[in-house]
């Protein structure tokens, strides 16, 4: 039982850098409160079948916004994630349209079997909205879902959505309700950044889209890393580097064709994901390229294949290369190395 190599001594002055500090919004980025809760209310207004189900995390997944508007359609199952998924399956099988919330770690690690066999295999329209995907909390491995997509990509008939911001979430929710079958969304909660409205972009389930064109470098990104990629692209103009950003909000089914067409240029390509380098966006791209080799080798920006540290989120995003500045530095370093 070793202690962390980065451990401090009591003599060092503590700083208020705690695990409580968990905002993913870069300085100056606009945010929207609880976009999922409000989007679900809008869908529910037109569709009586919509119900909300949670496992003692309604307040922490923005589902409380729905619960306040529709107390009679809000099912609190207690801290029992397996039950929440099983019950949602039963509800869907008998005519309701459940949106189920918990944290990503509990949806994937704890309740996998229930999602797989009760929901995905029968093809039920149950939409799992899972907060704290990837590295979005400094609480340590118990709450960091760094491998959630790796766990889930092997599950047949499950749609996996990795939204970038509030706009993505608002536009995804009605499409998820309308689409048949099971889905898992890597939910951003609370004060959620909004960046995509500044571009000519709209969310389309199953589609990857070029959000920003660029001649020198291509960043293929998903989730909150699309926000970071766009912010990094802005900063890289100061270095006279013209960066394109291709956003892949649907990880499964993967829009390989659009991604391969974008890679099939002389540009240097990097993937950017809030997930371990194993089994997520990078490997989705790699699998597509193995089938149809195009372009140059692709470099991953992703979390390392290891259990991550606890601490303040901004510190951790710097440490593991997910912050905007880290992306800028990485692109410049790769340009130097790869030319």
């Amino acid at each position: 039982m070793s202690t962390s190599s980065t451990s401090t001594t009591a003599a060092q002055a503590p700083k208020r850098s705690a695990a409580m500090i968990a905002s993913i919004a870069d300085a100056g980025v606009e945010t929207t409160r609880a976009p999922f809760g409000h989007a679900l209310n809008a869908v529910a207004a037109d569709d009586e079948r919509v119900v909300g189900v949670t496992a003692d995390l309604g307040k922490y997944t923005d589902l409380h916004v729905f619960g306040e508007e529709h107390p009679d359609r809000y099912y609190q199952m207690g801290m029992a994630e397996q039950l929440a998924f099983g019950a949602a399956a039963g509800m869907a099988q008998t005519g309701l349209l459940p949106f189920v919330t918990t944290y990503s770690v509990f949806a994937t690690r704890r309740a996998y079997d229930f999602l797989c066999l009760d929901i995905a295999e029968p093809g039920l329209n149950v939409n799992v909205m899972a907060a704290l995907p990837g590295l979005t909390t400094g609480y340590g491995p118990s709450h960091q879902a760094f491998e959630d997509m790796a766990i889930l990509r092997g599950m047949p008939d499950l749609t996996i959505v990795d939204p970038a911001d509030a706009l993505d979430i608002e536009q995804a929710v009605p499409q998820l309700a309308a689409a048949p079958g099971a889905s898992y969304t890597r939910l951003l909660r609370g004060a959620v950044p909004r960046v995509l409205h500044e571009y000519d972009y709209s969310f389309e389930l199953g589609k990857a889209k070029v959000v920003r064109p660029g001649e020198d470098v291509l960043l293929v990104s998903s989730g909150l890393m699309t926000m970071r990629a766009l912010l990094a692209a802005e900063k890289l103009t100061e270095h006279s580097v013209d960066v394109a950003v291709l956003h892949c909000p649907t990880i499964k089914p993967f829009d390989a064709e659009t991604v391969l067409d974008a890679i099939d240029t002389p540009r240097m390509t990097l993937t950017c994901e809030n997930h371990t380098v194993v089994g997520g966006l990078f490997e989705s791209v790699a699998a597509a390229m193995a089938r149809r080799p195009v372009g140059r080798p692709v470099t991953p920006i992703a979390l390392p294949d290891e259990f991550l540290d606890a601490g303040a989120l901004p510190t951790l995003h710097d440490r593991y290369g997910l912050s905007t500045d880290a992306v800028v530095a990485r692109v410049l370093a790769e340009l130097d190395a790869q030319g």
Partner: peptide, 25 residues
């Protein structure tokens, strides 16, 4: 709960002497 502390916000045996297991889940 500070960065680099042996006392993380959620108790973990890998960080703190005397902590027998990593709880939290």
């Amino acid at each position: 709960a500070a960065d680099g502390s042996r006392l993380p916000m959620s108790g973990m045996s890998t960080y703190t002497p005397g902590m027998e297991i990593s709880g939290g889940s």
